[in-house]
Computed example of a mutant assay.
Amino acid sequence: MDFDDTAALLVIDVQQGFDDPYWGDRDNPDAEANIARLVQAWADAARPIVLVRHDSREPGSPLRPGSPGNALKPVVADAPHDLFVTKHVNSAFYGEPDLKAWLDERGIRQLVVCGIQTNQCVETTARMGGNLGYDVVLPIDATHTFDMAGPGGLRLTAVELARATAVNLDGGGFARVVATDDVLAG
């Protein structure tokens, strides 16, 4: 992988509330360790880091502002960062402050996206980044998600959802889906 000095790391919703049993079974127990490795590499290289937090508006959500679960997990809570975005929808591009404007003002064209949930806010942010013309890379092992129910009793495991995200993003041309080691080797 070849990254320029302005390649930004977007760390999506790495919040304590995702440790709540409310979410159910998760995949990838190594996600936080891989996120920490990416944050450290980006900090060491003095590349831009963007932290994103989901401020849920749903009553009872572990991610609602004012609840302990809204806080960032220790793995990123004290991470150096250049921008802090808050949002209440899936895409970091619909947060405050304006992520796209911030990236464009700095001439940033490459994004590495990691965080929680693989098939929700991470995938949505990566898709939008690809649609907006950014070169998006998603280290899938620096994300995790949870089992999810759909229509008609359909249920997919977290592993199945992560695989679907990989296919959607890479197969759909939105992002290159790789491993954390691939990114760090660049």
Score class of each variant (00 low, 15 high):
residue 127 R to A: 00
residue 172 G to P: 14
residue 97 P to D: 11
residue 154 L to Q: 15
residue 169 L to N: 15
residue 126 A to N: 09
residue 171 G to L: 03
residue 85 V to F: 03
residue 158 A to R: 15
residue 93 F to L: 01
residue 87 K to E: 01
residue 168 N to V: 13
residue 179 A to F: 12
residue 125 T to Y: 09
residue 140 I to Y: 05
residue 170 D to R: 06
residue 80 P to M: 06
residue 147 D to P: 01
residue 132 L to N: 01
residue 76 V to W: 02
residue 132 L to F: 15
residue 149 A to D: 11
residue 87 K to C: 06
residue 169 L to E: 13
residue 71 A to K: 14
residue 123 E to N: 11
residue 99 L to N: 13
residue 162 A to T: 13
residue 120 Q to V: 11
residue 111 L to N: 10
residue 183 V to L: 12
residue 169 L to D: 13
residue 168 N to Y: 09
residue 89 V to C: 10
residue 145 T to N: 11
residue 177 V to N: 00
residue 165 T to N: 03
residue 96 E to F: 07
residue 166 A to Y: 08
residue 83 L to D: 10
residue 161 L to A: 04
residue 174 F to R: 08
residue 113 V to Y: 12
residue 111 L to G: 00
residue 76 V to H: 06
residue 105 E to H: 11
residue 155 R to S: 07
residue 155 R to G: 01
residue 103 L to R: 15
residue 156 L to V: 01
residue 77 A to F: 08
residue 95 G to H: 12
residue 124 T to C: 06
residue 82 D to I: 01
residue 85 V to P: 01
residue 128 M to R: 13
residue 102 W to T: 12
residue 179 A to N: 14
residue 134 Y to A: 00
residue 115 G to S: 02
residue 170 D to I: 04
residue 115 G to M: 02
residue 135 D to Y: 05
residue 174 F to Y: 15
residue 81 H to G: 02
residue 99 L to A: 04
residue 134 Y to I: 00
residue 73 K to N: 14
residue 97 P to V: 07
residue 135 D to N: 12
residue 137 V to I: 11
residue 151 P to H: 07
residue 122 V to L: 01
residue 103 L to A: 09
residue 143 T to V: 03
residue 117 Q to I: 03
residue 124 T to K: 03
residue 121 C to P: 07
residue 108 I to D: 00
residue 157 T to R: 04
residue 90 N to R: 10
residue 71 A to T: 14
residue 181 D to M: 02
residue 183 V to M: 12
residue 86 T to W: 08
residue 179 A to L: 14
residue 92 A to H: 08
residue 134 Y to C: 00
residue 97 P to A: 08
residue 122 V to R: 00
residue 90 N to D: 07
residue 94 Y to E: 02
residue 124 T to S: 11
residue 127 R to P: 08
residue 145 T to Q: 07
residue 143 T to R: 03
residue 181 D to N: 06
residue 127 R to H: 09
residue 85 V to Y: 05
residue 127 R to V: 05
residue 160 E to W: 09
residue 98 D to H: 12
residue 161 L to Y: 07
residue 158 A to W: 15
residue 96 E to A: 15
residue 125 T to E: 05
residue 71 A to H: 14
residue 89 V to F: 08
residue 162 A to H: 09
residue 93 F to Q: 09
residue 104 D to F: 03
residue 166 A to H: 04
residue 124 T to W: 07
residue 92 A to P: 04
residue 154 L to F: 12
residue 107 G to K: 11
residue 170 D to H: 14
residue 84 F to P: 01
